[in-house]
Amino acid sequence: MFADLVRCETRLYNALNDRLRERHGIVTSQYEFLRYLREHPGARVAELAAEFVIGIGATSKGMDRLEQRGWIARQPNPADRRSSLLVLTDEGAQLAEAAERTVTDRLSELLGGPLTGAQLSAAARALSLLRAALERDRIGTPTG
């Protein structure tokens, strides 16, 4: 099961990466950051790092790249001068929306053929329960 889960994730991630690069000039991790910031305007780097289970340094570098491309902006955090709040620019919001359509369409192509709607729903429920348990128990959280 582990091998299947990991290989499916890798292949799906790579397929989305290819399509996003082709259509929007971004990669899957950038799409994920943009999507998160669209849903959580004013998030901090630490919040993104926790959500994506990656280090703060890697997350900060990812935000630097998005900021350089004009897709996000850093705003002063009124509650803590040591951190910034991250928000999408108008261009970033437009990109996130267009990329989400691409991701949804590509996932439908990739998952809709081999799996029925009921199987997809069951898999989604099972993965959601597993993720919730892992997050609740802080399993696999990076230390740095």
Rank of each mutant, 00 (worst) to 15 (best):
T141M: 06
A133C: 12
G55H: 08
R125W: 07
P142W: 02
M1N: 14
C8R: 10
H24V: 12
L37N: 01
H40I: 06
L20V: 03
S84Y: 12
A93I: 01
P76I: 07
R82L: 11
R65Q: 14
L85A: 09
N17D: 14
P78Q: 03
A15C: 10
I72W: 01
E109K: 05
V6W: 14
E100N: 12
L48T: 10
P41F: 02
G92I: 00
G112Y: 04
R7I: 12
R21S: 07
L48H: 10
T102A: 09
P76G: 08
L85D: 05
D18I: 15
H40V: 06
R7M: 10
G62D: 01
D105Y: 15
F33C: 00
H40E: 09
E51C: 12
T59H: 03
G25S: 13
E109P: 02
Y36S: 05
R35A: 05
G70K: 08
Y13H: 07
S84K: 09
P114D: 04
A73D: 13
G57H: 13
S84N: 13
L16F: 05
T59L: 05
E109Q: 08
F33E: 00
G144V: 06
L127M: 13
Q94I: 12
S128H: 14
V103N: 03
E39K: 07
A126F: 15
V6H: 12
A58P: 04
A133Y: 14
A123K: 02
G112W: 04
T28R: 00
E135N: 04
R69V: 10
T89Y: 00
Q75C: 05
E32F: 00
L110T: 00
L86I: 07
Q119V: 02
A50Q: 11
L12R: 03
S60L: 15
L107H: 06
R23Q: 10
C8S: 10
V53W: 11
E100I: 10
K61Q: 14
E135A: 03
S60C: 13
T116P: 01
G25L: 10
